Amino acid sequence: MKLFSYKGLSMVIMLRDEHCPPHAHVDAGAWSARFKFCFWHNGVELWDVVPHSNRPPVAVLEGLRHALRQPVHLRRARTIWWEKLQTVCLDHQIWDWRTSEVLVVKRIASTTDMICSACYEPETNKTLLALFGASEGVEIKL
């Protein structure tokens, strides 16, 4: 499903055979790129470009990344991903209460809990986390 166009390139969320982490695609013919986004912060990062030998100029990739970061586009990407896959790709990851972030390296500390389940509320643009062993969940306003 198309998210937006940038300089003639379409950013899309694929609706078949998708997988975590949440990401969007751009297919330019000579190259394609994927951009990762998430449901706990508003950052977007370039995931990969194939083939590497046909990589477009950095300005094009950065322009696409910044366009996806626009609140209207990021919210639409999250909504499409959630409605299609019914996952925010956070189950069984580690939440750190102190830093308010999902830990990439799974270090366990007194300030961390494992995410039992997570969901996204498109209407309010919030992610809700249920944590193992925690009496309350986490509400992330995006």
Rank of each mutant, 00 (worst) to 15 (best):
L3Q: 03
L3V: 15
S5K: 14
S10K: 12
M11E: 00
I13P: 08
R16M: 09
P22V: 05
A28P: 11
G29M: 13
A30H: 11
A33R: 07
R34K: 14
F39N: 01
W40C: 05
H41C: 12
H41Q: 10
N42H: 07
N42W: 04
G43A: 15
V44D: 00
V44F: 02
L46I: 11
L46A: 10
V50T: 14
H52R: 13
N54D: 12
R55P: 00
V58L: 12
A59H: 14
G63D: 08
G63S: 12
R65G: 03
R65V: 04
H66C: 09
A67T: 14
L68F: 07
L68A: 04
H73I: 01
R75T: 08
A77L: 04
R78L: 05
T79P: 04
W81L: 02
L85P: 03
T87I: 02
T87R: 07
L90C: 02
D91A: 14
T99S: 12
T99P: 03
I108M: 09
S110K: 13
T111D: 13
T112W: 12
T112M: 08
T112H: 08
M114Q: 14
C116E: 15
Y120M: 02
N125I: 00
L128I: 15
L128D: 01
A130F: 03
A134W: 02
A134R: 06
G137E: 07
G137V: 04
E139M: 12
E139P: 00
I140S: 01
